[in-house]
Design a protein around this nucleic acid. Sequence first.
DNA 1: CTTTACAAGTACGATATCTAACGATATGGT
DNA 2: ACCATATCGTTAGATATCGTACTTGTAAAG
Lengths: 147, 147
Amino acid sequence: MSDPIAFRVMNEIGIIDQLGTTLFERSLPHALTLPQFVVLNHFVRLGGDRTPVELADAIQVTKATMTSTLQRLEAKGFISVTPDPKDGRSKRVAITAQGRAARTDSLKAMARDLADMETSLGAAKLEAALPLLSKLRVFLDQRRSAR
Amino acid sequence: MSDPIAFRVMNEIGIIDQLGTTLFERSLPHALTLPQFVVLNHFVRLGGDRTPVELADAIQVTKATMTSTLQRLEAKGFISVTPDPKDGRSKRVAITAQGRAARTDSLKAMARDLADMETSLGAAKLEAALPLLSKLRVFLDQRRSAR
DNA sequence: CTTTACAAGTACGATATCTAACGATATGGT
DNA sequence: ACCATATCGTTAGATATCGTACTTGTAAAG
């Protein structure tokens, strides 16, 4: 009478995402949301500038969703958005100095929860879980593209 | 320069939840969303009737969120909502015959994707990942309550 | 050159989710 | 009995997300 194992895993993942998102957002400064932080983090880690479509693909959301997130980040002054000189349809997005500072503040704010998580669950166990999660993500991503 | 392991795990989980939710919702009949299905599934698996607060706790969402989901399910005729005779503040929620049928239809629709997932990733591997995920959920749930 | 097809970004409507606040009802201590 | 407190469900406002459709611009085909 139990749900299939794949369903149970997806269910657990859904709840974890929900709880984790709200936990982290509560500690984020500048009224940043998690998606907003993820965009800033992406810029700091990989450098350079990006188009909205590139960001959407990297972060696995739709163009429309990225438009919304970028508008909020721009309103806060954490990114700059300029027209692309080479392609009239496109834009170039880059992080600002304030955006970098906000990302640093955010990391500090999340550090304690992340450290507690590692301590409580074990860094090795978390590391061990990552390969399956990656496979799961790849599987789902292919499913999406395939149809 | 890499993100901490706990962050990488949470990040991967977030993307999996996103991709998985949209994949499953695309196959669901009766314009059901995943949260709506989860409520129906809960009733069929555990039987009986429930108050909105009980459902919210079981499914790990807030009361307000459950209010919204229940209103949509009731509009579709998949649940019945009646005042609690013993407590004037409360309500009793139960699944209807149409709700049961919709849940059965939904299971069929998801079955193929779930089976493919098990085949592709291995039932044993999925089973092996579940304990850590459960611990993670419990950790996050305690964090929420603790504040 | 046109015309057609494709790509980038946005607008809109729907659902889900949270927090905060509210009214109604219960419950417990005095 | 009364009043303070707690609980139940709802509503309001914010953000995220999706799918669809539209505008604008580029590229390819004729």
